[in-house]
């Protein structure tokens, strides 16, 4: 079985620091293989490079070194204007800040992804309703994000990520803005995505209480992975 993501020596050096031309070695030489149906946790202190690594794995940030394959596609070699295509096909995102369109209802936020994929409107509406029901928000599908709690917003974001039906889901601190019980709820949803739907889910997080839910945990510091732990079930 082909791995979802294979990265070797993945490196990112930011040329432009926040205060002028300083080189920042955010990620240095990371090797990582992500398999289908795997829920991976990425732990590390603030500034260790988790977000940078996820951005590269998610094909929204160009590595400055190393190699990266997504389902056999050599991402480094792909020209910039084909990157949307790779993302559309393989990758979905869940963000700490939810990033929902404030003007669109929960339902419409999910619909948007389907529209971008040119799904016929009737099918799209049916799927969007179904996904929103799956994350337990059937009653709130016509709510605007401002009328939803943080946990509910993140569930909409998960429904949106699911709508894309992409094999890889990348989540950067998805529980960072949530209290513990909501955080656990979101983690359970992500756990189910990996187990039941065979998605490859990579989650960067600070929350060590959720460690037990992952298949594999990677520890990052100073841009490098210095430890790995397989979890037994």
């Amino acid at each position: 079985m082909e791995p979802a993501i294979v990265a070797c020596g993945l490196t990112k050096v930011y040329k432009e620091g926040p205060v002028g031309p300083v080189e920042v070695h955010a990620v240095g030489g990371v090797d990582i293989t992500v398999n289908e149906g795997e829920l991976i946790g990425l732990f590390g202190p603030s500034g260790s490079g988790k977000t940078t690594l996820l951005s590269m794995l998610g094909c929204i940030l160009r590595p400055t070194g190393g190699s990266l394959e997504v389902f056999g596609n050599d991402v480094i070699a792909i020209p910039e204007d084909e990157m949307p295509w790779i993302r559309k096909r393989y990758i979905s995102f869940i963000f700490q800040g939810f990033n929902l369109f404030p003007a669109l209802t929960a339902f419409e936020n999910v619909m948007l992804v389907l529209e971008l994929r040119k799904v016929p409107p009737d099918d799209a509406a049916r799927r969007a309703e179904q996904l929103i029901a799956e994350v337990g928000l059937a009653e709130r599908s016509s709510f605007l994000p401002r009328d939803l709690s943080g946990g509910q917003k993140q569930r909409v974001a998960i429904a949106r990520a699911l709508a894309a039906d992409s094999p890889i889901i990348i989540a950067d601190e998805p529980t960072g803005n949530l209290d513990h019980s909501n955080g656990v709820h979101i983690m359970r949803l992500l756990r189910a995505l990996a187990s039941d739907r065979r998605k490859s889910v990579i989650v960067a997080t600070h929350d060590s209480r959720t460690q037990g839910m992952f298949d594999r945990i990677l520890f990052m510091e100073d841009g490098e992975i210095f430890g790995q732990k397989e979890m037994v079930k």
């Binding site: 949307p84 993302r87 096909r89 963000f95 404030p102 971008l116």
Partner: peptide, 18 residues
């Protein structure tokens, strides 16, 4: 103000054109 949402759309596969 919507830069984040537009960026999210791009991350989710939208092209600049969309």
């Amino acid at each position: 103000e919507h830069l984040k949402e537009f960026g999210t759309m791009k991350a989710l596969g939208a092209e600049n054109r969309d």
